[in-house]
Nucleic acid binder design. Sequence first.
DNA 1: AAGAGTAACAACCGCCAGCAA
DNA 2: ATTGCTGGCGGTTGTTACTCT
Length: 327
Amino acid sequence: MGRQPCCDKVGLKKGPWTAEEDKKLISFILTNGQCCWRAVPKLAGLLRCGKSCRLRWTNYLRPDLKRGLLSEYEEKMVIDLHAQLGNRWSKIASHLPGRTDNEIKNHWNTHIKKKLKKMGIDPVTHRILFTNEIEQPQTKPEQQPQQNQKESSPIEEQDTKVEYENDKNKEPQNPETSFDSSTITEEHDQIMTPLFDSLELMNEFLIEEVPIVKPDEILAPCVCSSSSTTTITTTASSSSSNSSNFLEDLLLSDFDWSQDNNNIENSDNNNNNININMALWDDDFIRNWDFVINDDDIGDRKQVFDAPQNQYPRVVMDSESWAYGLF
DNA sequence: AAGAGTAACAACCGCCAGCAA
DNA sequence: ATTGCTGGCGGTTGTTACTCT
């Protein structure tokens, strides 16, 4: 028996979401929390499939999303994580609170790929791209791109997924050069070293017209363990204090976690609920949501979300805590 | 001003894993 | 053990905005 489609597609709307649809979905989830997505469209009065609702919510409407362009720091994180994880966008996104896998994937495909290529780095393998590799026969074996591998990961041979999930109990093989005590192995370092060095160069080459950087211009002595030029340098022994620096920088620096806010009692008035909970978030964002929730005059949906990118909230919050805990 | 080309990103599609019956 | 459902993931497509000629 074939599998049923996730929903009856007959009569369902596709394409861009309207402000009205957004409003219905937001109102429904704020009222009921995230439940069975299959049932959401019907209950919320939407002519969409549940999957579409889930994607719309997780990728666009969730209140804990940062929105806006990735910062330079986040971009570097994405590059580094991609070097370790390959195209496991959800895993990468899990390291960047407030960012979705879709967002990171798009940013990778539209921005980072080009930057890396301009720098002479293969965005797939994260290794140096030679303008004509045939002319570089003296390339050291360990620097040669791993040919004939799946594109998805430069280190596909290692089961990084398993490694990621299990190695919290393992000692890193090379603590001195670990980027993150829970993730890095020696082989990772072999891959990451040129990347780290080139990342520094990248800071200076993030301009439109960038010559292809020759390998000898990029490869610098390996200083990954102690160099101050390495943007992200951590040691395994100090993972508890250092390895999470990027997280500390990325999230919650301007967010005061308040248990009290999580214990706000339900109100019969949804709008009250919304306003109470919005107190956790950025003013601009609150205004946007107020527009969505309260404004009867649904105009161009762009009005809802097209605030200047830098004005999007940097507040990050676990979605479930507000979706379930507050409602 | 208009059309073509390009970039950016939202949304969709198909597949898969996990889970419950 | 099997089957069906759901949610999640990654790849791809479609649409819109922007730039160039």
